[in-house]
Design a protein around this nucleic acid. Structure first.
Length: 1126
RNA sequence: AGUCCCGUAGCUCAGUUGGUUAGAGCACUACACUGAUAAUGUAGGGGUCCGCAGUUCAACUCUGCGCGGGACUACCA
């Protein structure tokens, strides 16, 4: 190190510039890699990066999410852990296919025809990494340290192979099965959806549908005990009413469900559309909804067709159980079910009387409950809708029409037609509709196409997640959720209501299901590795089912990229593989792909190609100690990680999870490109720099609360936190450079340091403990706020403010060295404490400091160790008395303000009443600080209370409350009304007994709070239990000193204006004025030494040239000229 | 419809195991301090702590019922 090397000084703070410079420094010196190397073979701290999809552009919320991840990884690194961080990309799935189809202008059917499979495959690989550069750029710019050079990519063969391995493990455990069920299905996407896909935010949306209460005509020509009752005394047709929000399912109706304990009524009335007399069945609790009380007055006979006043008459009532088995005429007879019974009333426990009619229309193909209840009762099904969402050919005039208009293309001539309405119209004409209305309810939509889904019968492969539901819940209890409620509430509820995981997707671009099945479905094989597949193909080739082995060149055990790039496990290549069963039968692959969420849930293992690589090290990278993503991943990634962890390894996949909330705009609205309120992360980083952006996001709201993102807030952080810290450093470097402080002197012993140094070091060490706790508890907001409070309130506005003089005045003494060492320690420690949150600025600070002193061997703060608190330096008494000093100073300043005595005017003394010696000795240790801060000459303590002070007494509710309960109010009032004598007595004796309505009340000193309210003849201020009085007498000497100080201040300002260096010596010439002459004469040395003046002349105003006229006080103006001495 | 989170000054947020007169910052006004400071200090305005009930001597804090905002769940006809 060169002797003349200096701490860098800056003209102004630019966090953006620092961000760029430090980023270059990291890149050039491989600091991230070093930070890993530094901790190699230390205890691992396992972190999983949730893979984003790079086919969308990153938003400001990604900055938030990535900052949180980065903070804890950096913190743990500082704490000595080895934190491997592998980036990852989620590359499979529908959005990629859709984007590719759009880009190439093709549809799914064109694959292999208009475009070769190879090209399609390539296009997908390209599409999926479309914005990778943008993502990498953002990742670097915000300082998120993650290994971008060797990311895991879900479309790679090695990744897929691990997925296959995991599926095979589940298969072996009997946790994979194929089932025919009613599933959410997206006709627009042409694929079924899993429940957690449906549970993505925004999938359920409120829509208005046309609903209808349909009349199902009871058949009289069958045997049923209830028929006599239903048809008694009338020949009108009898109808059962059932409500639906999906009229397009009515042609597929095959049953009606009632609740067996629900009461139903039989009513005579007229159909409002046809005015024909009808007899209806509906649930009694819902009767009033259709038959308003006011219509009861109308008689059946008085009804005029078309009138709105429709009369009604209740005939009888019965239970739902009595209705079971009733037969009815098919409502819309387009087709008949091929198997099973149909058009019968059944009972179901899901029927409620919440809405509708208390009778549920059952279309087994389009509802899970419908399917279940139909199967239980042997009812057949009708599926009069195809997979594109159109009515089938059997549907007569409706054949070929889409059941939801959203499925039509924009230029479809039927675009504005709604088939539900046409069905309703038909029912109305046929006297089969009793009521119709628009109804708003929430309906699930496909998260990819934004179009409504249908429930549709599909063949699918499922993971039997329900089998391990209990275990998942048990393991969940061991996970540390931040916040806790997400784990117990949201995630816990989800596990309780768990369904089996539907894995199947009918698409192209994804991980293929590795299951081959024989034609008769008797024989199955689930492949768990490429090696196994290759061997199976060999058998198939031998059996003559395949001509050659596409995996011939693959060398088992060779994990090189080259070896794994010799083939492609994607469709349709994999579909060409035909295997041979043990019995010698042909086996073909189940054509489904698996849910992309399985890919992401498999990342803990697949990122390292487990178990084909790093098999024995599993416990070094699984389970994760920590993961973090948005709360919207609760049913997404958090679930799939947990499910696979539990099912395949009987383990949690993560021990701690931080789920962060949404980033909203400053008005609390969701950000969206459409509304134009989305914040561009790149612009924000460019303008405010990464540190301020991160600091703001972390300290403004808890990560799990939603953040109202306001750029003003970043500006404030920049000014308040970084500006203050920067200024503190500037102050340090300015004087340290002058004095040549390089931390070369021996450490000044702690006990020898002055009070204020020991105080800030005590606070600093307390801060280390608190911040460490906050990080360890995954509370970054708390950590950040603690740090900024320390910098602002303690370091800058008290320590530096009061110590300023020590830095620039006098010789390079031990006191001065102590000041430098103390401030240096504070700054270096702060750099380390804050480095997880603000990695760039703190590294600059660390390097600027350490570059001169060489105190630490590390080239970067991120290679250092987290500070360890020296608890021997923590002195709570000292912290307490310094707080007294701050409060008292502020009270005196307040008094000065009230009495219009500015701080430069010295005053003689401050009087502080003290109640005990302990308190007084506390104050005595800080009295000089108070005196200099508020510019008074002495502090006097007043322990004598007799007569002089006016005191006030208050009850201490905390101690008296439990003792006196109901009497508390009276006791408090009595105490407040104590006379001065009584107060003095309790102070003297320590206790007092008084009577309150017959009862004897005994109180002690700790049961009351006594404060001095007033000191007659003084100006007094109170705050809490503290009281101060100020002597405001101005002697001529004090006035002169005041003038001298004003003069010094003006001269200093002149020096600064003229750009003199702080060490320049000057000469001063001043106008000769009567009002100040004595002040200068009596304070001559003081003025000269403060201003570094070698020569002070007082000249007649006429003779003074080159002077400036300065206002000294309200009444005095004076001409001053200063010159630099060479 | 249910579950969870949130509701404190114009704005962003603190508020310990219930304890007396509910705080900070920003913004606004005035004044002051400063040879580090885009900082800071002092003073001022600004509050039915979402509402109502209950428990308690005492509720911003605990309980219940509502209201408003948000997230999530749902077979919901």
């Amino acid at each position: 190190m060169q002797m003349d090397k200096k701490y860098p000084e800056y003209k102004q703070l630019s966090l953006t510039r620092i961000g760029n410079e430090v980023l270059n420094f990291w890149t050039e010196n491989n600091v991230f890699e070093q930070s890993l190397e530094n901790r190699r073979n230390h205890t691992p701290y396992v972190f999983f990066e949730g893979p984003p999809s790079a086919n969308g552009v990153p938003g400001i919320h990604h900055v938030m999410a990535r900052a949180i991840k980065d903070i804890f990884c950096r913190y743990k690194t500082l704490k000595g852990f080895y934190v491997e961080r592998k980036a990852g990309w989620d590359t499979h799935g529908l959005p990629i296919e859709i984007a590719v189809e759009k880009t190439l202008g093709i549809t799914k059917e064109d694959i292999g025809k208009k475009i070769s499979v190879d090209d399609y495959n390539k296009a997908c690989r390209k599409e999926v990494m479309k914005y990778k550069d943008l993502w990498d750029d953002l990742t670097l710019k915000i300082g998120y340290w993650v290994d971008l050079n060797d990311p895991y990519i879900t479309f790679e063969n090695t990744y897929i192979e691990t997925c296959w391995y995991l599926l095979a493990q589940l298969y072996k455990k009997g946790l994979l099965y194929k089932g025919y069920t009613i599933q959410p299905y997206s006709p627009a996407a042409g694929t079924g959806l899993s429940t957690h896909e449906l549970n993505q935010p925004g999938c359920y949306r409120d829509v208005k549908d046309n609903t209808v209460v349909a009349q199902f005509k009871v058949r009289r020509d069958t045997d049923h005990a209830l028929l006599n009752t239903l048809f008694e005394g009338g020949n009108a047709e009898v109808f059962i009413l059932a409500w639906t929000t999906t009229p397009w399912t009515l042609p597929s109706n095959t049953a009606l469900a009632v609740g067996k304990d629900i009461d139903y009524v039989l009513v005579d009335t007229f159909n409002p559309y046809t005015s024909l007399p009808v007899r209806l069945v509906l649930a009694k609790p819902l009767f009033g909804k259709y038959f308003p009380e006011k219509n009861a007055e109308f008689t059946m006979e008085s009804y005029e067709p078309g009138s709105k006043n429709i009369p009604f008459k209740v005939i009888t009532e019965f239970k739902g159980s009595q209705m079971a088995g009733l037969r009815y005429e098919q409502l819309l007879p387009y087709a008949q079910p091929e198997t099973g019974d149909a058009f019968m009333v059944v009972t179901g426990d899901f029927v409620t009387t919440e809405d509708g009619t208390g009778i549920v229309h059952i279309a087994p193909s389009f509802g899970a409950d419908d399917f279940k209840v139909a199967r239980q009762n042997g009812i057949g099904a009708l599926t009069l809708v195809d997979k594109q969402g159109r009515f089938t050919a059997e549907m007569g005039e409706f054949a070929g029409r889409y059941v939801k208009s959203e499925y039509m293309t924009d230029d479809d001539p039927m675009r504005n037609e709604n088939v539900d309405i046409d069905i309703i119209v038909k029912l109305k004409k046929e006297n089969r509709a009793f009521k119709t209305e628009k109804y708003e309810h929430s309906y699930p939509h496909c998260w990819r196409t934004d179009k409504p889904i249908l429930y549709y019968p599909l063949d699918s492969w499922f993971v039997r997640a329900t089998a391990l539901k209990e275990r998942m819940m048990e393991l969940n209890k061991t996970i540390n959720w931040k916040p806790e409620s997400t784990g117990t509430g949201r995630f816990g509820n989800w596990l309780e209501n768990l369904n089996d995981w539907n894995l199947s997707r009918s698409r192209y671009w994804g991980t293929p299901l590795p299951i081959w099945v024989s034609e008769d479905r008797e024989e199955e094989i689930c492949i768990e590795s490429v090696e196994q597949l290759k061997a199976e193909i060999e058998k198939s080739v031998a059996a003559g089912f395949m001509k050659s082995n596409p995996f011939a060149a693959f060398v088992p055990g060779d994990n090189s990229a080259e070896n794994y790039n010799k083939f492609d496990l994607h469709r349709p290549y994999v579909d060409d593989i035909v295997l041979v069963s043990p019995k010698g039968n042909k086996m073909t692959r189940e054509t489904d792909l698996i849910d992309v969420w399985f890919d992401s849930g498999a990342m803990p293992y697949a990122q390292f190609h487990y178990p084909f690589e790093r098999k024995d090290e599993l416990n070094e990278y699984f389970p994760a100690d920590f993961i973090a993503e948005g709360v919207d991943q609760t049913r997404g990634w958090f679930y799939t990680l947990h499910a696979i962890g539990t099912l395949a390894f009987d383990s949690v996949a993560f021990k701690t999870v931080v789920s962060n909330g949404l980033v909203l705009d400053k008005n609390g609205n969701k950000m969206s490109k459409r509304l134009g309120n989305a914040v561009d992360p790149f612009e924000t980083l460019e303008k405010y720099g990464p540190d301020a952006t991160r600091w703001y996001m972390i300290t403004n709201a808890q990560p799990w609360d939603n953040l109202k993102f306001d750029l003003e807030g970043i500006a404030e952080v920049q000014r308040k936190f970084f500006g203050t810290l920067y200024n503190t450093y500037s102050f340090f470097s300015l004087y340290a450079n002058i004095d040549g402080f390089r931390y070369e002197e021996a450490e000044v012993p702690f006990a020898s340091r002055p009070e204020i140094d020991r105080w800030i070091l005590s606070e600093l060490n307390s801060l280390i403990l608190d911040v460490d706790d906050a990080y360890a508890d995954y509370e970054p907001t708390k950590a950040g706020r603690l740090i900024s409070d320390f910098v602002d309130a303690h370091l800058s506005n008290w320590y530096v403010r009061l110590s300023r003089r020590r830095f620039w005045k006098g010789d390079y003494s031990q006191d001065k060295i102590s000041a430098y060492q103390t401030l240096y320690q504070c700054l270096v420690t702060l750099a380390k404490l804050a480095s997880p949150i603000a990695p760039f600025f703190t590294d600059r600070l660390f390097i600027d400091l350490n570059g001169i002193t060489g105190k630490e061997k590390h080239a970067s703060v991120h290679l250092s160790d987290f500070p360890v608190a020296d608890t021997s330096m923590i002195d709570k008494q000292l912290e307490e008395r310094m707080e007294y000093a701050q409060v008292i100073s502020s009270m005196v300043l307040s008094l000065r303000k009230k009495t219009n005595l500015r701080v430069r005017q010295p005053l003689q003394k401050v009087l502080i009443p003290v109640s005990g010696t302990a308190f007084q000795s506390q104050l005595e240790k800080v009295s000089n600080l108070i005196a200099s801060e508020v510019n008074v000459k002495e502090i006097e303590y007043l322990s004598e209370s007799a007569g002089f002070l006016v005191k006030k007494i208050k009850a201490n509710f905390k101690t008296l409350g439990p003792r006196y309960g109901k009497q508390m109010k009276d006791v408090a009032a009595t105490i407040a009304a104590f006379s001065q004598e009584q107060i003095n007595q309790i102070e003297k004796d320590g206790k007092l007994i008084f009577m309150l309505n017959e009862d004897e009340i005994e109180i002690f000193l700790q049961d009351v709070e006594i404060i001095t309210e007033d000191i007659p003849g003084w100006v007094v201020a109170n705050q809490g239990s503290l009281t101060v009085a100020l002597d405001i007498t101005l002697t001529p000497q004090l006035v002169e000193e005041g003038i001298a100080r004003e003069l010094v201040n003006r001269i200093q300002n002149l020096r600064k204006d003229k750009g003199f260096d702080v060490t320049d010596k000057i000469s001063i010439r001043i106008d000769k004025l009567d009002s100040i002459e004595a002040a200068i004469a009596h304070n001559y040395t003081y003025i000269c030494s403060e201003t570094l003046c070698e020569k002070l002349e007082i000249l007649d105003p006429d003779q003074l040239s080159g002077k400036e006229i300065i206002d000294l006080t309200d009444d005095i103006s004076v001409g001053i000229a200063i010159n630099k001495l060479v």
